[in-house]
Each structure stands twice: as structure tokens, then as C-alpha cells.
């Protein structure tokens, strides 16, 4: 439907296409369902479970001793903003699985977090370099409100899949909805197909 008096205040043409319905944002907005949880890296632990069985646990020191990977990417939030050319550093999910001595099972994974947040993604979307845990943004330690000390980053999906304050990954055979997915957000969340909500 055309709004005849609407012309938009188009900002400079993006240097490359951004997903439909998104606008370019220079800042880094914060969206969380609750307050920023207090995370103590002295007692912090990250765990991976496959089919309900623990296959690996890492302390903060363990995490930092794993091979570190840099990533330059664009990010897209379901609340309509996209941010280009962001720089991250952290540990790929591949490196974690290798350190645990396991191969990624087929199926799905649920990310679990401090504060109780969860989100679901297909396993295929976090392996082969597609997903990582990031602790550094733009050369600085990741700020607590942005998910610090460490968050998941899956830049090819809407940002709610990149769970803040991550504490674990639970691999499972069947897909299950996480926190926002239970409230009607899309199970997969591909920004290029504008999969914001159930039915998109």
C-alpha cells in the first residue's frame, strides 16, 4: 500500500545491499528482555551437551587458551537496524567441538545464558565457521550490555539468535523454540528472507 505523502529520508545509499525492511545504524542499540546479568569470569563456566550428556566444560582461562579467530561482518537486528563492518574476536564453535573431541551432531542446538535467555538454531548454522563465541568487539572487551563477557555470534541470522551472556550449547535431535521463538519470533530468522515472526 502506497503512503502518498511519504518519501522517506533516505540516508546515504548503503555500500552494499542490506536485508529488506532494515535501515543502517551507526550506533549499537541494546535490546534485552531483562536487566544486564552480573557475570563473574572467576566462576564462569561454559558447557556443551549432546543429547543431555556433558561433553565439555571450559573455564574463562580455558576459553582464552583456545585458538582465537577474528571476524569482520555485518549484523542485522529484528528491530529493523543493520550495522555494517563490525569487528569481533573469539572462539569458533568448531574450535570448541574440536577441543572436546566430538563432531557436531546433526539436528539443532539450544543456546543457554545467564539470565535465563535461550535461543534455538540448526547445528548447520553454527559450524563450519558460521558461529562463534565472541568476547571482543572493535578491539575492546565486549561491554556487559552487549552480552559481555561473551556472547554467541551468528551474523547471517537476526541478532536475537546471537545470544548474550552465553553459558552453554545443548545439541538436540529436534528443533525446539527458545525464549523469543516461544513468543512468536521465527524459528530460523534469516534476515534476507525477512523471517521476523512465525509465518514470515
Amino acid at each position: 500500500m502506497i503512503n502518498n505523502k511519504f518519501f522517506g529520508r533516505r540516508r546515504a545509499e548503503p555500500p552494499r545491499p542490506i536485508p529488506p525492511g532494515q535501515y543502517l545504524e551507526d550506533g549499537f542499540p541494546v535490546l534485552s528482555a531483562g536487566p544486564t546479568p552480573r557475570v563473574d569470569t572467576a566462576t564462569w563456566e561454559f558447557s556443551i551437551e549432546i543429547g543431555g550428556e556433558s561433553v565439555g566444560k571450559w573455564s574463562w582461562e580455558d576459553m582464552n587458551a583456545l585458538p582465537q579467530t577474528a571476524l569482520h561482518t555485518d549484523i542485522h537486528c529484528v528491530t529493523k537496524w543493520s550495522k555494517l563492518d563490525t569487528d569481533w574476536r573469539g572462539v569458533t564453535i568448531d574450535a570448541l567441538l574440536e577441543d572436546a573431541g566430538v563432531t557436531a551432531p546433526t539436528g539443532f542446538v539450544m543456546a543457554t545464558c545467564d539470565g535465563g535467555y535461550t535461543t534455538n538454531v540448526p547445528t548447520a548454522d553454527i559450524v563450519d565457521g558460521k558461529g562463534m563465541l565472541v568476547h571482543t568487539y572493535d578491539g575492546e572487551p565486549l561491554a556487559p550490555e552487549h552480552g559481555g563477557p561473551i556472547r554467541l555470534l551468528i551474523p547471517h541470522l537476526y541478532l536475537w539468535k546471537s545470544a548474550k551472556w552465553i553459558r552453554g550449547l545443548k545439541f538436540m535431535e529436534n528443533d525446539e523454540p527458545g525464549f523469543w521463538e516461544r513468543y512468536g519470533y521465527h524459528m530460523y530468522g534469516d534476515p534476507w528472507r525477512e523471517q521476523r515472526y512465525t509465518g514470515d
Binding site: 502506497i2 518519501f7 525492511g21
Partner: peptide, 14 residues
Amino acid sequence: VRLTAPDGYQAQRS
């Protein structure tokens, strides 16, 4: 809310 300009340009906000 979604607005569409006569040339098809769209903007959405919540």
C-alpha cells in the same frame, strides 16, 4: 508500522 513511498521505498518501525 510500515510506510511505502510512491517509488516503492519502505521503512518499518515498532
